[in-house]
């Protein structure tokens, strides 16, 4: 049995779990390639026009593997933490995909509530049945998948740079180098080190978000806001670069919250969409680096780099 897993959206964070689970159940795993032009073009072609770029790209990943597998996994991530939700587009992702393509293999679209092992197991149990496995086999695959996820560390924590920035935003915008025009590499090349949210304890992210007038409804809001605030306060970085896909609803909230809480902290927003012309994004990052350099070292000289 071939199980297709699209390399889009939260795959970047949770691939060890999902890949291990299905391979432990004896499936042959078909993962789509890294995002590329064909995937982008197919995504734009098949996806509803109003969706954000990462959702369109997810559709492109589906297109690239739909004819190569017997079962397609379309994760419907509902909750990762208690009392919080994920972006509504994640909840309706399977419907968006299923109605955008004429022919698809069998799809696994069970809702994922990852607030406890017990709840997550509900997903595993239903999904495992698609491969005609018994409870015992599913349980074993589930435990191994959880362990694989636990051992897997993502995130960037550069050291040795004079200027450091926190790279914030949704993980699928940060880690998809095609979608963000090789942003991580660009930032490093301009002499800036990167810190991402993964190295900050979840407790701290909660604590920072407690200062807000109400508990955030979206997990992304709490995590990204909490990290930005903490990094600025603890002087982990000299500035924030926020990579945001055009049209993103949660980003529009997070960006305003961060700006309000950190009015004087250097903050650069990079809006990305289908553009492949890099001049705009280069100009912004270079200017941001120049600004940080002069703020930090207060020199009269102007960097002649880039």
């Amino acid at each position: 049995m071939k199980v297709g897993i699209p390399k889009g959206l939260m795959y970047c964070k949770y691939h060890p779990f999902i890949v291990t689970f299905f391979s432990e159940l004896g499936a042959e795993i078909i993962v789509s390639e890294d995002t590329n032009k064909n995937i982008l073009d197919a995504g734009v072609k098949y996806c509803v026009d109003d969706a954000c770029l990462p959702v369109k790209i997810f559709h492109g990943h589906i297109d690239s593997i739909k004819d190569k597998c017997d079962i397609l996994v379309i994760p419907r991530i509902m909750q990762l933490w208690k009392n919080e939700y994920i972006c509504p587009k994640f909840c309706g992702l399977p419907e968006m995909v299923i109605n955008s393509f004429d022919r698809l293999p069998v799809t696994i679209t069970e809702p994922i509530y990852a607030t406890s092992k017990k709840k997550l197991y509900c997903w595993a149990k239903t999904s495992g049945k698609f491969l005609r496995k018994n409870n015992h086999e599913i349980k074993r695959a589930f435990v191994n998948a959880l362990n694989a996820q636990k051992d897997h560390k993502t995130g960037i924590d550069d050291s040795g740079y004079e200027i450091n920035i926190t790279l914030t935003g949704h993980p699928y915008n940060i880690y998809d180098s095609f979608l963000n025009m090789n942003l991580i590499n660009k930032i490093n090349k301009l002499g800036m080190g990167i810190k991402t949210a993964e190295f900050t304890e979840e407790d701290i992210l909660y604590q920072e978000a407690e200062n807000l007038y109400k508990r955030p409804f979206w997990t992304f809001v709490r995590e990204i806001y909490g990290f930005a605030l903490n990094a600025a306060k603890e002087k982990k970085a000299d500035g924030i670069i926020y990579v945001s896909s055009f049209n993103c609803g949660t980003d529009s909230v997070i960006i305003e919250l961060i700006k309000n809480s950190l009015p004087d902290f250097p903050f650069l927003i990079l809006k990305i969409d289908e553009h492949t012309g890099e001049a705009g994004i280069n100009t912004r990052i270079e200017a941001f680096r120049d600004m940080l350099e002069r703020r930090l070292f207060n020199e009269s000289h102007i960097s002649t780099l880039g």
Partner: peptide, 11 residues
Amino acid sequence: GIVTDFAMNTV
């Protein structure tokens, strides 16, 4: 005499 903030139009 130092650029402390800037913004540009988005896409």
